[in-house]
């Protein structure tokens, strides 16, 4: 039975392996390129703003242009990081939906083996195929993402699809799709609905669950204006690190505990903030705005997930995806026993 399951997917899998190898090579070449360019950008003192001689200026300009050109291409490469999830959905569609559609499930389920055995054989094989593709890709992508983001693992706006989370999400997608296939029974619809569900679920994990499962960091952000000898000095204080993922930035009551204000709170705070911004005394002393706000117990903060939480997030999200996948797999085994084909 294992052989037949392999035979069904053989051609597809070999094509996927070939494409994966191409993608990995492209990622490595691109990543090395970016590394060396950003290295020369830094070591060539192009970032300092004092360019000195004309050849140096031309050199920095060249480096900058090449980096810009790569960035456009990198957007597509970053998009391709969803490849393991797509592969998982295709494999998951094949597991049940395709066989139901082509009625071959009637052939398979009337051989001398139980549905559970059939399912576990096929699932194990597809899982192995998925891992063979997803693990090297996840390593390559993690390295590449770091290169593109100049060394940071957590980025301000992106979803975390890298690290071993890439593998965990793919496994979740495989199981979810296979179960969905038994319900939907049509491969095209299974594929489409699984894609939507997996994306919605991972978006939900990212925005609603992630901030709750790791400690958040808060930083006060503000401006202090001093006037000395008739010259106004503006001092910015507080800044969110660039290698962090921003959860919230805005005004927050200085209440004990703090935390992210909900929508209702934000709206109720808005009036206070506007009042302080429109104080008539602001012209006399710009610091009055800060004073006004602090009188109302308000402060401007950035709340973020710090780079140091990277491994914690990977671990906790990974466990979350895998346990949901495990539960769905159990449901799937129960479900196919009563599936009418």
């Amino acid at each position: 039975m294992t052989w037949a399951a392999w035979r069904i997917l053989r051609t597809f899998f070999l094509v996927v392996v070939a494409l994966t190898i191409v993608l990995i090579i492209v990622l490595i070449v691109d990543g090395v390129d970016i590394r060396s360019l950003s290295h020369s950008l830094i070591t060539g003192r192009c970032l300092s703003g004092t360019y000195g001689s004309t050849p140096h200026l031309v050199y920095c300009h060249n480096v900058d242009t090449r980096l810009m050109r790569l960035e456009g291409f990198d957007r597509y490469l970053a998009g391709l990081s969803i490849a393991p999830v797509i592969l998982a959905i295709i494999l998951g569609t094949n597991l049940i939906a395709s066989e139901v559609e082509h009625k071959t499930v009637r052939l398979a389920w009337t051989q001398s083996l139980t549905r559970s055995k059939w399912m576990s054989t096929k699932f194990t094989l597809e899982l192995a195929m998925l891992l063979i593709i997803a693990i090297p890709l996840s390593f390559t992508y993690s390295w590449w993402f770091e290169a593109v983001a100049y060394g940071s693992r957590v980025r301000p706006t992106h979803l975390f699809f890298d690290g071993w989370l890439m593998v965990a999400i793919a496994i979740f997608a495989l199981v979810a799709t296979s179960l969905l296939g038994g319900v939907v029974r049509r491969p095209a619809w299974t594929f489409a609905s699984a894609l939507v569900i997996v994306l919605i679920f991972s978006w939900y994990v990212q925005t609603d669950i992630n901030p709750k499962i790791v400690p958040l960091h808060t930083v006060n952000i503000g401006v202090k204006v001093t006037v000395r000898k008739g010259v106004m000095h503006v001092i910015n204080f507080g800044q969110q690190p660039s290698n962090s993922w921003s959860v919230f930035s805005g005004y927050e009551p200085l209440a004990p505990g703090g935390g992210i204000p909900n929508k209702g709170q934000e709206i109720s705070l808005e009036d206070d903030v506007t009042n302080c911004q429109n104080l008539p005394s602001l012209n006399a002393n710009p610091n009055n705005q800060m004073i006004c706000l602090s009188k109302l117990n308000l402060r401007y903060v950035a709340i973020y997930v710090a780079d140091s939480e990277y491994w914690d997030l990977q671990l906790r999200d990974g466990i979350l995806y895998l346990s949901v996948a495990g539960a769905l797999l159990a449901v799937n085994f129960w479900f196919i026993r009563r599936l009418r084909v």
């Binding site: 294992t2 035979r7 082509h102 009625k103 499930v105 051989q111």
Partner: peptide, 28 residues
């Protein structure tokens, strides 16, 4: 039991030899 479905489903991409291999694997 041997069951032949009305639509005679077979794995279309298989060769006859491969179908038989499947049969041999799946039936003692």
């Amino acid at each position: 039991i041997g069951y032949l479905d009305q639509e005679r489903p077979l794995y279309r991409g298989f060769r006859v030899r491969e179908l038989f291999r499947f049969g041999a694997d799946a039936n003692p």
